[in-house]
Design a protein around this nucleic acid. Structure first.
Lengths: 131, 131
DNA sequence: AAGATATACTTAGCTAGCTAAATAAAATCC
DNA sequence: GGATTTTATTTAGCTAGCTAAGTATATCTT
């Protein structure tokens, strides 16, 4: 395998794993956090908005959202359009949110601590050239 | 989420997905190909050698190797040490190998076609700084 | 207004990563 | 040489991505 692509997969696995460790004390997984994060930013979202925003397929979000509801992190209601489901953070999630966000920002800063600000920008631009 | 980390996850998902499409005509998935690839390079390997080489956990390799054996891509034999399993490519795999390798090299070249040789090296070095 | 098409979400089933704990063989230590 | 520890692999069970196909509601077309 192309060493560049191989390295990218390695880094991706490493980061999800480390993020999972960070989130463990909140009883959350990385992808669950991604969903909570984007709901918080938009206050409320439909499932379609979520999966388009995160750039994954719909069934992935159906499953994660249901799990988050089971665990009490989010509430699901239905809007005027009976097909769609509107999702928002629960009271519990709103309370916990700042602490989790802080922990995750620290974690992310730590992960990219080896790069200067210019290198971060450079890496970001180079990644976008893969397609 | 840090936009850099987010972008890295996006690229990683995109690449596995595209690689899966490329491999579809050989009835293989990306991770299965990774295993075949490294077995071919080493002629034969134990499971432990494989998961250490690919930097994943042992159960992941147990499952993928068993699936590859079921599908007739590899043969599993046992060595002097009765704990370990030694794995090598089947006749079928050896025959197909060059065609798959060619297809995958074309695919990989295409994926990084947007980058100059210097940018490839740069990207590789920057990725390694994430830890 | 009825039929056709599009959209939102779900279900089923696959690969693929992980952790924790179990099993069996090998190696090490009195 | 017998008990202990280490090593190789497996099993069970979780998250998380995907595709393909199904259901229900909205919208569009004529």
């Amino acid at each position: 395998m192309n060493p560049l692509i191989h390295e990218l997969f390695q880094r991706s696995r490493f980061l999800t794993q480390e993020a999972n460790h960070t989130l463990k004390k909140f009883n959350l997984f990385t992808s669950q956090w991604s969903v909570l994060y984007c709901i918080q930013r938009h206050k409320e979202m439909t499932l379609t908005q979520i999966w388009k925003y995160l750039n994954v397929e719909a069934p992935t979000i159906t499953r994660t959202v249901n799990r988050l509801a089971e665990l009490g992190w989010i509430e699901i209601c239905s809007g005027k359009d009976k097909r769609e489901k509107i999702v928002k953070l629960s009271e519990h999630a709103l309370q916990q949110y700042p602490a989790i966000k802080t922990a995750m920002m620290e974690f992310e800063d730590q992960m990219v601590a080896g790069l200067s600000k210019e290198e971060e920008v450079q890496l970001f631009e180079l990644l976008k050239k893969i397609r």
